[in-house]
């Protein structure tokens, strides 16, 4: 990974500090860690998939720093952790990341409500991909709560985006100087 171009570091007219690769990697690792926290059944199905949300965040705001390879590898790890079919999460994460990179200019421009709508669509799309794979493989439909995870994922988007952007904000002093 090399330095990103300047265009990626402007958010809503504010110039952000360049992102370090370590930061991106560690946020993704943290998301994976949160995904692995054992939870009781109903809560687990309502929890958002943090890995996809963070992947979408980086795809939208740093599309040149993140590729499909990290999405694919994280997907494989989730497949092992979830005992799902090998490649199920990998494929859906790749599609979600690709869609987010494809739409990044549009999503960056939008106000928060439109951003949430886009994120919801991407999350539901990647869940639909997983559903399709499972239906083809074993024809066993999930329950009504299946897509709740997309809703909660979209609901945490503003908080996640705000938190992830925080370390990249320049401090007021810094801004005065440069």
């Amino acid at each position: 990974m090399s330095r990103s171009n300047l265009g990626d570091n402007i958010l809503g007219g504010e110039i952000l500090r360049p992102v370090r690769g370590v930061y991106i990697t560690s946020t993704l690792a943290l998301a994976l860690l949160i995904n692995l926290i054992p939870l009781p059944g109903w809560l687990a199905s309502a929890m958002p998939d943090f890995v996809v949300v963070i992947l979408i965040y980086w795809s939208v705001f740093q599309p040149h720093r993140i590729g499909l390879l990290p999405a694919w590898v994280l997907g494989l790890l989730m497949d092992v952790a979830d005992a799902s079919l090998f490649g199920q999460h990998a494929l859906s994460y790749c599609i979600a990341t690709c869609t987010a990179i494809f739409l990044h200019r549009r999503i960056q421009m939008f106000p928060m409500s439109y951003q949430i709508a886009h994120v919801l669509a991407i999350l539901a799309g990647q869940q639909a991909v997983q559903l399709l794979i499972r239906l083809v493989a074993s024809a066993d439909g999930p329950d009504m709560l299946y897509f709740v995870s997309s809703l909660t994922g979209a609901a945490i988007w503003p908080a996640a985006a705000g938190l992830l952007t925080l370390p990249m904000r320049r401090r007021a002093k810094e801004e005065e100087v440069g």
Binding site: L68, L69, F86, G87, L91
Partner: peptide, 16 residues
């Protein structure tokens, strides 16, 4: 992007 997606999708399908 699409070529890369096609590559990874193909890999995933092979694995699946």
């Amino acid at each position: 992007l699409l070529v890369r997606l096609a590559f990874f999708a193909l890999m995933s399908l092979v694995l699946l």
